[in-house]
Nucleic acid binder design. Structure first.
Lengths: 343, 343
DNA sequence: CCCGCCGACTTGATCGTTCCAACGACAGCA
DNA sequence: TGCTGTCGTTGGAACGATCAAGTCGGCGGG
């Protein structure tokens, strides 16, 4: 078991190597790593030295096998939508990786099979490759959450379980209504009275939630909403058309949009008509994508606190994977507004 | 070892369970999974049935421990730069996940410690958590590649090893010079004669490479380049300032930029002066970010074939991890041009 | 007829760690 | 002195897979 001195080892040092060098048993080294307070101070010191000298790091596979845990979190990555402004995932993934590292977890990415969106989950679950999942698409009708619940797989959702009475899984979400209310109130404070809404189709719960914030803000000032709202697909072209129609028929002086993608559509219309965003017409988007940050003259946008979302998600994961497992209530976070030239 | 019939197993089925059900030995089941052609047709059939019936999937940890391989690829994710247009990583990550899945690998994300950029690598390496790395930042002076080489860690670089004579590691890159040459030639064909360049600082190899394509295209038509180039930081503000100066001093009718971020800076300057991109002044960016796709009137941009890069990276990984390991020559791919309203 | 070979499958050992039961030393108490 | 309990440590077994070596029956050739 001992290594030939002066020779570069071809395999990494093991627990047994450290034990031999420190003159203790394997279990004592294991305790030094996992339960240091079980050792006497001088023994711990000696073992620590041996660990440092050999550059020992516990073999992941062996530990996983014995403890039946992988310390990996599965995250499905969706095909990047071309032609939309949504860079949400990028920021969230980074925050999640950063936060889970501090909790001792790594993030495992996997792609969905196009025919069977659940196959990826099933595979990782049965081969015990991950301890838990983080799911991000919780629009209604998404089978993931329900399926994972029946499989008793631990998971945390970024997004409310819309339309489900009593969810048995933890979730974290951002208050979309509060976000668009923030945006609308900001425009009202700037003196706008006719503020239009461009959102998503009525069957989108997220879209209706965000829309509610807009109408709430207008009603709070006794302003009407009729004729000022439009519900379309989440594409630049849809936003362009919808804003053109609204400008002709309702003459709004400002737009609040359910996404930066739609807001970019509004900017297209303004450019075509020679109108300057922020001077002639105000525009506010949603998600604070990179697009919003760099497009002239800067697009005011509702910013989701993704760093905080990641923190809450990891907290929920730790509860879920604890002994005994703990499922806390859902967490709803408040967004902020990034104000730029377009308002 | 046998399961109580009619009861839901609390632990996943193992090789031994399958073996018992099929009436064969463990090794035979293992062969059925990994070397099916070693079995007689009828035996294979019987084992397959048992596997399906139990829903068996090999335990990852056990397999990893025995084979000393994790079938995981480590990818470091950098902090998303706020205020830039770079969505390159997003697309590449997705392609890499997709491609490596087909090769039987998963992607493990990790974050760099801010103090010690190598700590993440070291940790994963020593605990044998990943089989190989994919590294993406190969600007000169980046210690990753050199460090990984001394550790004899298998890795593939997306990006040429600039300034290194004989790299001992595989790499895949996109021909930046060809990209800006493509962009410049496109503008020349549209009748532009005075085409300016906005690129990065002289010590950026990537920037100088891209710049070379621009000057090559101009010289091929006998056109001068003097006074038409600017080298700045990769920010929107720098692009804005540089383009303002160039417009005043050299009156170019078109801009080719080393990044979409810089191109957005040009659009800012045009907007401030009431000039319309594509009509009054043409602009071409680099990377085909989401910004380029949605900004009015659409930003023409050099598009890197990231899907192909991922394929080549995974090919190189398979060679690297094969028996015996094979290190092929570097691969250089040609970009394309996504033409939009700005030219 | 016997030997060697080959195909198909089985058996025991092993990867590196953690869990479990047991161990010796020592102290407290009767 | 002897019993009991605690503390720090030990050795053996187990996690679930694969590797290496071995078994067994059948077939062909000298």
């Amino acid at each position: 078991m001992s290594r030939i001195p002066g020779r570069v080892p071809t395999t990494p040092p093991t627990l047994a190597d450290v034990a031999e060098l420190a003159g203790v048993s394997r279990q004592t080294v294991s305790n030094a790593v996992n339960n240091p307070d079980l050792l006497r101070a001088d023994t711990l010191e000696r073992v620590q030295q041996a660990i440092d000298e050999l550059g020992y790091s516990p073999n992941r596979a062996a530990r996983n096998l014995r403890t039946r845990a992988s310390h990996l979190i599965g995250l499905r990555i969706n095909a990047a939508q071309e032609g939309t402004a949504n860079a949400l995932m990028d920021r969230f993934v980074h925050s999640l990786v950063e936060t889970s590292r501090e909790a001792g977890y790594h993030v495992l990415l996997f792609a969905a099979d196009h025919q069977d969106p659940l196959s990826g989950y099933d595979d990782l679950l049965r081969s015990t490759a991950v301890d838990a999942f983080v799911i991000t698409d919780t629009y209604l009708g998404n089978p993931q959450a329900a399926w994972l619940e029946t499989r008793r797989a631990p998971f945390v959702a970024f997004g409310r379980p819309w339309g489900v009475e009593e969810p048995r899984h933890p979730w974290v979400d951002v208050d979309g209504a509060a976000g668009s209310e923030l945006a609308t109130t900001h425009l009202l404070d700037r003196g706008h009275h006719r503020i239009a809404w461009i959102g998503w189709r009525r069957d989108s719960w997220i879209g209706e939630d965000r829309r509610a914030g807009w109408s709430r803000a207008l009603r709070a000032r006794g302003l009407p909403t009729t004729g000022l709202a439009s519900r379309v697909e989440d594409t630049v072209a849809s936003g362009r058309e919808a804003s053109a129609v609204l400008l002709d028929e309702a003459q709004p002086s400002a737009f609040v949009c359910a996404s930066d993608t739609l807001a970019m559509g509004v900017l297209h219309t303004l450019a075509e008509r020679g109108l300057v965003p922020g001077r002639d017409v105000a525009v506010v988007g949603f998600d604070d994508s990179q697009v919003a940050q760099v497009v002239p003259p800067g697009l005011t946008s509702v910013r989701q606190p993704l760093e905080d979302v990641a923190v809450e998600v990891v907290k929920a994961l730790e509860g879920l994977l604890g002994h005994p497992p703990y499922v806390g209530p859902g967490v709803l976070l408040a967004p902020t507004l990034a104000i730029r030239g377009s308002s």
